[in-house]
Amino acid sequence: MRSRVLCGIAAAAALLTATACSTTGGGSGSEAATGATGTASAGAFPVEVADCAGKKTTFAGPARRIVTSNGSALEMLLQLGAGDRVIGTGFPPGKGTLPAAVADQGAKVPVLGEMGIAKEKLLGSGADTYVDTFGSMDMMGGAGGGAPTEAEFAAAGIRHVYLLSTACTATAKGPRTDLAEVEQDIRRLGAVTGTGAKAEELTTAMESRVKAVTDALKDLPAERRPGYFFFDFDAGTKQPVALCGRQVANAVITLAGARNVFADCDSDFRPVSWEDVVAKNPDWIQLGVRDRGSEAENTKAYAEAEAFLREFPATRALPAVQQGHFLRIGSEVTTIAGTRNADTVQRIAATVHPDLVRNGS
């Protein structure tokens, strides 16, 4: 199944992400937050953006012909109103994955690779900008001879930029506990596409939704933060894949007033054993499945994930399983950087702290 393959790739990506990221996030609209110089919110150029190692790329004018490495960057660009400039993508979002408001436009973006984009196809795409979610990963498909070098990008006239929230995890200092880097990525893309005003609108809305939750939970003592396990059902059930502290979802879980039981594993994702999961004894389990494209298919997938946990000898005796402490929230809105991370914070908080947070409030 394609969704399982993609999820397995996402887990593998954790081991192959790019090197050092010197950005830290920061205040709204600041250079520290955007990783860009110039008055980006006003659409002024030139604009400079830094990669994970701090190397800067200059945009004398807005990006016009963009290729994205996967659906995460594509979704951000669509929401920024720059979707008409995306001429191709790898790892295309599955049916039903994109928000309804941009789904039709997203479906029209040419697919340059069902997984990674072959090197020669990327270099010959006519793009002036390549937005890379994971950084220097050798996942360009077998035909293209690996990922292009920076010199090859330059020779093809392609500016190579990154989503720092996912490309810089290899040297992140400790677990991620906020969405500052996700907001930073949205502002960076706004800067290079001249849609800075829309980027501020999107990030301000995210901040408002998250603040409503964190304000409601501000007096929550540590002992009331329930243990939380993200069950990556699409990664397979033979060996569970732990969602670790460096992954964006760790911030989502933390902001929602829960405690990721695998926050201390120093990675994005890491294979663990079912014995490890049982030892953590989570209070709540998120049934992390990828969108199947319809409500009926999603309901079926959640039911399959729950049934596995209820029937599997290692997990069926867990109190969370016996009490039915399951959350049916999709993988994409939890583990992939984007504006919908803020919605997931609210949904998780409303489930595990219904006395303090209401969903949709």
Rank of each mutant, 00 (worst) to 15 (best):
L318H: 01
G145W: 11
K56G: 00
G174D: 01
E152N: 09
G26C: 13
L309E: 02
D178G: 02
R64H: 11
A53C: 13
F45Y: 15
Q247K: 05
L15A: 12
L189Q: 04
L163D: 02
K121A: 11
R347M: 12
A147P: 00
G106K: 02
A317F: 07
D283C: 08
V357E: 14
R310T: 14
A50K: 14
S125A: 14
L220N: 06
R176P: 00
A154V: 04
L123F: 02
K121E: 00
P148D: 14
G145Y: 09
D343I: 08
G113M: 13
E152H: 11
I348R: 09
A305C: 05
A191Y: 14
T58L: 14
T334C: 11
A20H: 14
T204W: 13
T214F: 14
A349I: 03
A18P: 00
A199M: 13
F269A: 03
E120A: 12
R358A: 15
G227H: 10
V352Q: 10
L202S: 01
C21D: 13
A180C: 04
A172E: 09
R209C: 00
G29E: 09
G145V: 06
T177L: 10
I158K: 04
E183Q: 14
C244T: 02
G61P: 00
P175A: 15
D138T: 09
A212W: 10
G174A: 04
K56L: 11
G83V: 08
A10F: 02
P110A: 06
D276W: 02
K108E: 04
L80W: 07
A20L: 12
R358F: 13
D276T: 03
K218R: 15
M1F: 11
T57C: 07
G43D: 07
G25K: 05
E311I: 02
E306C: 06
G27R: 06
V321L: 02
P46G: 12
A191N: 03
F230I: 05
M206D: 03
T214R: 14
E120R: 13
A155V: 08
G54W: 15
E332P: 00
K300M: 09
V241E: 03
N70E: 07
Q323E: 10
A103L: 05
G96F: 09
T97A: 14
V49R: 07
R187T: 00
Q79Y: 05
M1W: 12
A258I: 01
V272A: 06
V210T: 02
P62Y: 15
A42N: 04
P92R: 07
F59D: 01
R225S: 05
V49A: 04
A12R: 13
S136D: 09
L6E: 04
E114G: 01
S165C: 14
